[in-house]
């Protein structure tokens, strides 16, 4: 009974997270969903993952989201898009799939308690190896995406380029145009601006 109530609460929180108009509210509802999922996992006997879900899912991700929202600045509430037919369709589809599959669940097997650490590092060791690669890829991606560069200047240069010419041929002429602009000339020198200057006229 408790499980049923918790599940209904989880779905409710998830729904609020996706329909709320303020980003900050949505983030908090997401954290609540995460916490409820953590409690459900605890109920299931998966204590270790429940702790991780609470700390990473409900904690770290929420902090990151709030951090990003502060960096972006509090955006105006997104206009509420209500798609009732879509919601009803999704509910119907899920009910249909659940109805199809729930009776074909295999008979439960008694849980063999194994130490999680051994399973994690020995039985699924190659998963961990792949996961390390994945984390490094993620770090690279974030560093690359956020790398502080002169991108604002570059965006301007690009726009000027775009306006100055639609044909790529006239790049030599508009190089002089852009370097005339006072706020750009300084950063154009520090910014590695490709080989624009070297091109023959």
């Amino acid at each position: 009974m408790l499980t049923a109530i918790l599940i209904i609460l989880t779905v409710f929180c998830a729904l609020l997270a996706v329909v709320s108009t303020r980003l900050l509210h949505a983030t908090l509802w997401l954290a609540a969903t995460s916490a409820l999922v953590g409690i459900l996992l605890y109920q299931l006997g998966a204590w270790e993952i429940a702790v991780i879900e609470l700390s990473v899912g409900a904690g770290l991700v929420t902090v990151l989201m709030v951090f990003a929202i502060t960096m972006i600045g509090d955006p105006p509430p997104t206009p509420h898009v209500s798609r009732r037919t879509l919601l009803i369709f999704v509910i119907l589809a899920m009910t249909l799939i659940v109805g199809m599959t729930v009776n074909s669940l295999p008979a439960p097997v008694d849980v063999i308690t194994e130490p999680l650490g051994a399973v994690l590092w020995q039985v699924r060791g190659l998963d961990m190896a792949a996961q390390i690669v994945l984390i490094f890829a993620g770090v690279l991606g974030v560093l690359g995406l956020l790398s502080v560069s002169d991108d604002i200047v570059r965006v301007r240069v690009n726009r000027i380029e775009h306006q100055a010419s639609t044909t790529p041929l006239s790049s030599a002429t508009h190089t002089t145009q852009t370097s005339d602009a006072p706020e750009l000339s300084d950063s154009m020198q520090s910014a590695p601006s490709g080989r624009l200057e070297k091109e023959p006229v």
Partner: peptide
């Protein structure tokens, strides 16, 4: 849990959490 390998399920979920983060 249903197939009696709760530790396996948890181990997979840990990897999922890392990838998802």
């Amino acid at each position: 849990a249903q197939t009696g390998q709760l530790a396996l399920g948890q181990s997979l979920a840990i990897t999922v959490i890392a990838a998802d983060t």
